[in-house]
Nucleic acid binder design. Sequence first.
RNA 1: GGGCGCGUAGCUCAGCGGUAGAGCACUGCCUUCACACGGCAGGGGCCACAGGUUCAAUCCCUGUCGCGCCCA
Length: 898
Amino acid sequence: MLDKAFDPASMEARLYAASEASGAFGAEPASDAQPFTVVIPPPNVTGSLHIGHALNNTLQDVLIRYRRMQGRDALWMPGMDHAGIATQMVVERLLGTEGKTRKELGREAFVKRIWDWKAESGGTITRQLRRLGASLDWPRERFTMDAGLSKAVIEVFVRLHKEGLIYRDTRLVNWDPVFQTAISDLEVESREMKGQIWTLRYPVEGEPGRFIQVATTRPETMLGDTAIAVSLGDARFADLVGKRAILPLVGRAIPIVADEYSDAEKGTGAVKITPAHDFNDYAVARRHDLSMPTVLDAEARIWLDEIADELRLVEGAANPEFVRSLAGQDRFVARKAIVAELERLELLEKVEAHSNAVPHGDRSGVVIEPRLTLQWYCDAATLAKPAIEAVETGKTEFVPKQWENTFFAWMRDIQPWCISRQLWWGHRIPAWYGPDGSIFVERDEAAAHAAAREQFGSDVVLTRDEDVLDTWFSSALWPFSTLGWPDKTPELDKYYPTNVLVTGFDIIFFWVARMMMMGHHFMGEAPFKHVVIHGLVRDEKGAKMSKSKGNVLDPLELIDANGADAVRFTLCALASPGRDIKLAKARLEGYRAFATKLWNASRFLEMNGIAADPAWQPESAQGPLARWVLDGANTAIAEASAALDAFRFDEYAAVLYRFTWNSFCDWFIEFAKPVLNGPDGPEKDEVKGAAQHVIGVILRLLHPVMPFITDELWTHLGYGGEASLIRAVWPTPVAVRDAAEARAELDGVVRLISEVRAVRAEVNVPPSITTKLLVQGASPEMLARAGRWIDAIRRLARVTEIETLEGAAPKGVVQAVLGEATLMLPLADVIDLAAERARLGKDRVKAEIEVKKINAKLGNEEFIAKAKPEVIEENRERLADAQAEIARLDAAMARIAS
RNA sequence: GGGCGCGUAGCUCAGCGGUAGAGCACUGCCUUCACACGGCAGGGGCCACAGGUUCAAUCCCUGUCGCGCCCA
């Protein structure tokens, strides 16, 4: 016997272990079944399961379990990402607590230290994914730094380099002064900062007393200015173009140029150009062939090496001694000193408050410093072309579709991707340098030496590039590298391209776009058919969850409190497309109650000796109750399947919630009770048969979202052995004889009971009072139907018996109108006539409004002329119904009055 | 500045040309033999605003206002 209350905590671990051990999560490359593949967005090895992971993986698990039950050879590929910067940060911090730095340790020892850390405490998240119930094919678990994936990374790098799609270049990059590495455009987030804007006066060369004013938000970079730009055709500066200005403090003469970048409407109309420390200025410098001195070092401190020779003493404007004193100062400290010095020299025109977007490193959180360095780049624009085309032609579809715009906007204007990182944790770039700087990009050191020998005619000393690759470089290969590429494996052959990628919009650029590029380039086709983009999980007020706000909901705590099934169901139910999820604990509790409801319904069936009966034929059902519930199940199957096919997880959840609770529990079980309590015989057997059939359907339909409770009940009710539900066949509709007739029958009884209940509740008749039901004007069908269901009606409507009323109504009846009939409950002792009159009056008002609305429509000639005939007909019927109802309500009120 | 999305019941959200829906919350009644994590019933809506298209608009179009996100 099932326990009275459903206790997820006591069974989840056991059920998951049994499922995993059974091998049911595993793909079967040798099977003939059509594959269905999903690759997990690999969580960071440093990570732990947060609510976003819970959502993301629940949706994937729902799809995988659904397709697996449909007989597909389902592969859900597990794995983790080495997460370059994030992991290096964690381990460096750990070293810090021991008072060590990574530089003291040295590269080799530090990397070994990370591997040790990974073996010990990395991958917590895989254990947590098991708690969520994720049916990943664990034996296939991969790691972006494992041997196979590293081989794929090297292969891709070498091939792209040979094709000219990876190259080295000295350009301005986003430089993180804390991690002291280049980062890509995507790893920079701009934050609105309140700051200041300084207007400086630069003396015009050869024209004493004349100045040109420039506005800047970064006065400390002025040491690296190599020009002043004014806008084309700005009359104020026309005569200055071609002349030079004296760069204050430094004393160097710099040209005044006209360039489209400068905006006459903004600031003073003239801007200083610091090519090595600003992206726009860099572009201007390239157009005008300006020099590009760097004045900040890797830690963003003032660095004078490249301008030391240019320092001049200029009376009232420049003093080498002052500039030299700045060397080694932090950029923001130097800023103050420089502003003070300019003020002293009366070269500061004004200072105003100013707010602007300042780039920050997404990991370090510090202000990014553009820096001119030699880095490796990937020609993303070339790789993007086939990826764009795949989306344009529908080979890959985003769900919801509007995300395609976001994808296109990024991809059509994509910039070279900086892929080198000055870190130690990651895939080391397979480039070796000869003594003369020659570059050998090869698969391994031996090959590099061979290539060098060929070039130099003898063995030379080669040094390997110190840098590693952007973490996202290896993630970009994930859909095929995890399947064995570059080797030709059966898995690669069978499971690529994958079917669906489920992810958040925040990594469309980082990851989805790059997988599209690499997938096309190396596999010749898109890595996935559908990209399902889900929203962000927020707190119940819509705020982002963050530790500092203290509004973080920990999925593991939610699972502890409500069970994994309830957490999963909640996330699905709230996953409306294109919307973020506002998660409130009350929702969790509501869906936990749903699990309990299912549990208790099963318990009821069990108590009535209802258990799996594979021999029972639903097609054989004779009675309307069995046919009605089977028909309802058919609808639920069709709707749930359609919802999942369309990635409508919310509708899928809603369909099952409604059918299970409002149809199966609220009505079917209640109608079944009189039968089950009655004599044994074919009728009871049929109701039991239908009940076991439908609960079997419900358990299977719910299994993708609620794997634990359904598994437990499935086994308990005897549908199969341990862990058999996971591979049970997804239900399909069964043939139901004359379903429309069954619907009319049961829906009619439901309406009758509901009407009586409503009337009783309205006039406050306590359930303890039972009464006769008098029916006037009912059709023979309705009377016959009521007679057939008298047991259920007695129970559910608190009616003792049903009588047809021919003559006048007795005094003191409560009345209600149901279709063509008037229902009367003789309750003379308990009713309040005034309340009764008010109730009938209220119904009459509603009917009158209806009549008015429809009359207006039907009186409109154009409506009659242009509306669809069926719409007109429908309105005529509704009008007749409403008018008839008014007539019966009037009659009812007349009876009360007498 | 450009783009995308959202304003529907107290809250969270479905719906999307032709009777305005769900869950939760709320109110009343009920410890009826699966379930009080329950049952029954009920109240509650100018579907943001203003125009337009249409026989008909919460739904389509345009604009306005408010909110959120992305990109510059």
